[in-house]
């Protein structure tokens, strides 16, 4: 932690957060919210939470801002002003926020000081993870080892949350418009319809995309030794396709990743994750006890088997996340019709 930067960034964050809800333009609000996420990412980095920062950079600053743009594109930018309206709602909101603030402030008096090395949070359970990560799992990045092994069960459901969100978006937006019953397997193949010839953007995208995807694969595979992992890599992979769909046309992406492919990929990703867990079950150990995999993975001990299994798990996560990010974006930006994109 670096307290000088901490203080400043927190102050900037408050300004951003306040302005986001005050500003009268939804697109502007989305832009400021994007800036808010940028600052968040800095805050996590400064407190040493590099993996959180990576996720925030990819999920928060990247994808969710683009999702906001997509939604604003499909609805309206304009916030109506009613000087006298909703006094009731405002009172309730103010009262609830004030009450909550007071209660939480009351609680802070008992908190251990910020960044105190002797606080209960840093002394009770976490030392085991810090000292145990190498002997138990041979993975230097302890966030990865806690994420995919010690608390791997949480992560499985976390991936399921993403999949659930994808399915939810499909079932909610699938009702609008006159599109064929789910799942769409083949869209009309046609020329790219939009007439904007953004030569520079398209050229840059064409050059960048392969490198970005390579980088995403690196992030997935190198998550054991540096920040990153399945989520971040998956989101970056998905974001490259979003980039293509923005700079060319939505059709360009949906021709390659139609709804069925996306669903298959996402479900396969989760089946990889839970399948690895179930494999441990079949091999006679508890669910997700990767050490049992040493019996079938050649050249591994019970410890390195954990590391190998984590890689498999991360690949599953990345597949699922990539597919769902593309799915959600495609549906939101086209209002569920896959016709025209941003």
């Amino acid at each position: 932690m670096i307290w000088q930067i901490d203080l400043l960034i927190l102050t900037l964050i408050v300004i951003c957060g306040f302005c986001t809800i005050v500003v009268k333009d939804l697109l502007g609000a989305a832009v400021i919210f994007g800036a808010y996420s940028f600052l968040m990412c800095l805050l996590w980095t400064e407190m040493g939470a590099v993996d959180v920062a990576f996720t925030e950079a990819s999920v928060g600053a990247g994808v969710s801002t683009v999702l906001f743009f997509a939604a604003v594109h499909r609805t309206t930018r304009h916030v109506k002003m009613k000087p006298s309206g909703r006094l009731m709602g405002k009172t309730i909101g103010l009262a609830a926020a004030g009450l909550m603030g007071c209660v939480l402030l009351y609680a802070t008096t008992d908190f251990p000081s910020w960044a105190d090395p002797n606080s209960p949070a840093s002394t009770h359970v976490s030392p085991r993870y810090i000292t145990g990560t190498i002997p138990d799992t041979s993975v230097p990045n302890m966030v990865t080892s806690v994420l995919a092994d010690y608390r791997g069960f949480d992560t499985m459901f976390e991936t399921a949350v993403i999949l659930t969100a994808g399915l939810a978006v499909l079932i909610i937006l699938g009702q609008t418009g006159n599109r064929s019953p789910l799942p769409i397997s083949r869209l009309p193949q046609g020329p790219i319809t939009q007439g904007y010839d953004d030569t520079i953007i398209r050229f840059i995208t064409r050059i960048m995309t392969p490198f970005l995807q390579l980088f995403a694969l690196y992030v997935i595979a190198h998550g054991h030794h540096s920040p990153g992992g399945g989520f971040q890599g998956g989101v970056i992979l998905g974001a490259t396709f979003i980039l293509m769909s923005i700079s060319y046309d939505l059709r360009m992406v949906t021709n390659r990743f139609n709804e069925r492919t996306n669903l298959l990929l996402a479900n396969t990703g989760l089946l990889i994750y839970s399948g690895i867990g179930a494999l441990c079950l079949i091999l006679g150990a508890n669910f997700l006890d990767y050490s049992a995999l040493a019996k079938i993975l050649p050249g591994t001990t019970t410890i390195t088997a954990r590391s190998e299994a984590m890689l498999g798990v991360e690949i599953g996560v990345a597949l699922a996340v990539m597919a769902i990010v593309i799915l959600i974006y495609n549906n939101l930006v086209s209002n569920g019709t896959y016709e025209n994109g941003l």
């Binding site: 832009v31 950079a57 994808v63 980088f215 980039l243 923005i246 700079s247």
Partner: peptide, 13 residues
Amino acid sequence: AYAMLNFIVTIAA
């Protein structure tokens, strides 16, 4: 990763 996603956000906007 950050620089790249920043690019996407700007282009989308």
